[in-house]
Computed example of a mutant assay.
Amino acid sequence: MEFIDLKAQYRALKTSIDARIQKVLDHGQYILGPEVAEMEQKLAAFAGAKHCISCASGTEALLMSLLALGIKPGDEVITTPFTFAATAEMIVLAGAKPVYVDIERDTCLIDASQIEAKITPRTKAIMPVSLYGQVADMDAIHAIAARHGNIPVIEDAAQSFGATYKGRKSCNLSTIGCTSFFPSKPLGCYGDGGAVFTNDDAIAKALREIRVHGQERRYYHTRIGVGGRMDTIQCAVVLGKLERFEWEIERRLALGEQYRALLQKAGVKAGLLQVRPDRDCVWAQYTVFVEKREAVQKALQELGVPTAVHYPLSLNRQPAYRDDASAAETVNSHWAAERVMSLPMSADLNPQQMERVVAALQGVL
């Protein structure tokens, strides 16, 4: 059994993806070819945002966003410690300090009620993470940001493209939204890729310049930038996958509900992530909470059921980002890091596979 069945997805989309890639090979415009602009237009329309700027990865999307906002040494960016390292990594590379706020234990999303206490005169951005496919409470976060001088909000939406919050799409909920097209994401390419979304014309202009080494025009550099372009072939792959993306979102939503129903019916003694009633979850990972996780994973592996852990150690306990003061406060992040375990999930997961996973987990627990 595959943890994420990219092979089945490719078989379903082979004709379209192959044709898209062949077209790039034929025209030979491998950097900023026509597929780049086509993908950006389609993604912007999908999210409902005015601008989409593609880039080399979801990580690059975060860095470019921070640079576009003028984040500099001495600034602070509020975020969660329960996320992939790239979130804090890009804050640090921009010269700023990550300020950690704990998560809600039942969703693993940043606890908006704790953000305001962490705001200082040095706070220049708030970066909530839409984890496991569900968006954080963006309205509450924006209300806090507005009370403190309209602090920009960057949604780290690497895992939630396609999800909705109060009827609005992830990546079009804040000043800037950033997503990833890493192969395992809800909408992935066959390498690295990402995109930044915004409705602000000035920010969009800055992002487009930053993406090409800060160039306003060829060899005229108006700002510090990066080599952040997404290559044309990867854009072609995303365009091929977009043809059934709406169906895949529907499948992910349905599979999440089916997993929950099967786990509850079987009486599996695992904690389940909660999805708030004002939003949905596209289940980039279907994650549960288990005790004695290492032993559970080993037993499941022996039964042929793959699992993964996202993430086993919160960032403020990582050697590179250690922050003992916040680590003592973020007790929910530490609790979750010791218990989260992700089960196989992809749009092509079939009922027999899901039943096998649930039966195996029930037996092991």
Rank of each mutant, 00 (worst) to 15 (best):
M1E: 09
L13I: 05
I17C: 03
Q22P: 07
G48Y: 02
A56F: 00
L62R: 05
L62M: 09
L63W: 02
M64L: 14
L66I: 09
L66N: 05
L67Q: 11
K72F: 05
E76Q: 15
M90P: 11
V92P: 06
A94C: 10
A96Q: 12
Y100A: 12
Y100W: 14
V101G: 04
I115W: 04
E116N: 06
P121E: 03
P121N: 05
A136D: 08
D137F: 01
A140E: 08
A143K: 15
C171G: 04
C171N: 13
N172C: 13
F197Q: 07
A204F: 05
I210K: 00
R211K: 04
R218Q: 06
Y220T: 09
Y220A: 11
T222E: 08
R223L: 00
V226F: 00
V238L: 12
R251Q: 14
L255D: 02
L262Y: 03
G271F: 00
P277S: 04
F289T: 09
E291N: 13
Q297D: 13
A299I: 09
L300P: 11
L313Y: 10
R322Y: 11
R322H: 09
T330E: 13
W335D: 10
V340R: 05
V340Q: 10
D348P: 08
E355M: 06
G363V: 02
G363A: 14
